[in-house]
Structures are given as C-alpha cells and as structure tokens.
Amino acid sequence: MKKRTKTNIILLICVILLVLIPFIFVKGEYGGSDDQGTEQIKKFDPHYKVWAQPIWTPPSGEIESLLFTVQGSLGTGVICYFIGVAHGKKKAQENSKNDGKQQVTGK
C-alpha cells in the first residue's frame, strides 16, 4: 500500500472518530446557539422584546435542519469549486512552464 493511501485511511478514521465520539460520550440536549442566546437575554432582561421576526418558519425541526445542511453543503461546494479552479490554473501554468523549458533544452 502506498504511503499516501495509508495516510488518507488514517485521516479518514480520525475524522470519523472525531464525529462519533461526542455523540457517544457527551450526554445532553443538542440545541442551537440562537435559542441559548435568547434564553440568556430573557434571563437578564425579562422585558426584552424581539425586534426581528423570521419571514418564514419551517414546518418542523427536521425541515429546518435539512435546509441548514443544504445551505452548508452548497457553500462548501462553491468554496471547493473555486479552490479547484485555482489549483487547476496553477497546475496548468506549471505545466506550460515545464513544456517551454523542455522545448528550449531540446529534451
């Protein structure tokens, strides 16, 4: 097995462990930070009134989670696309430089 493949497998196992370990060992309820912030504000200022309301509220928590995941996935896709384009441009420039050097030296 190549060294790179072995390294990738080890990194994949580490990522899976980092994802699964909190679900196994951390007991409690998982909630959004926006809910926790609102609770703390109301705790310190009971007369607090919310000044912004959502335009649309999803029908369930599952739909809200789905939309959040889709939004994150699309954002990740866009970022990775531009990283890939930049990497491809750099590789093409390196290849064209190497081709020019080979033609000059006659190799």
Rank of each mutant, 00 (worst) to 15 (best):
K3A: 09
I21E: 02
S33D: 03
V78R: 06
D35N: 13
Q53D: 12
S33A: 15
G32Q: 09
V78F: 14
N98Q: 14
S96W: 06
Q102D: 02
K2F: 04
V104K: 08
F23I: 03
Q103V: 13
Q53E: 15
K91A: 14
K6F: 07
I13H: 00
D34E: 07
G72V: 03
I63E: 04
P54R: 12
L18T: 05
K2S: 15
D99L: 10
T69P: 00
S73M: 15
G75N: 13
N8S: 07
L12N: 02
V70F: 09
K49F: 05
L12K: 12
I21G: 04
P58N: 05
S96P: 01
P54G: 07
N95S: 02
K90M: 08
I41F: 05
V26N: 10
G100A: 15
T105C: 06
Q93G: 05
L20V: 15
P58Y: 12
G28Y: 00
E29F: 09
K97Y: 05
F23G: 10
C14G: 04
K90R: 14
V70E: 01
T105E: 08
G84Q: 02
V78H: 02
Q103Y: 05
L17H: 00
C14R: 04
P22I: 11
M1G: 12
D34W: 14
T105N: 07
K101A: 11
E62A: 13
T7E: 09
Q102S: 10
V15C: 07
T57A: 11
I41D: 04
L12V: 05
F44G: 00
S73V: 12
D45Y: 12
G100K: 11
H47K: 13
F23C: 04
L20W: 05
W56L: 13
E64F: 08
S73G: 11
S65I: 04
W51Q: 06
P58D: 01
H47T: 08
Q93E: 12
G106V: 05
A86G: 08
T57G: 01
K91T: 14
L20I: 14
Q93Y: 03
K43I: 02
I21D: 03
S65G: 08
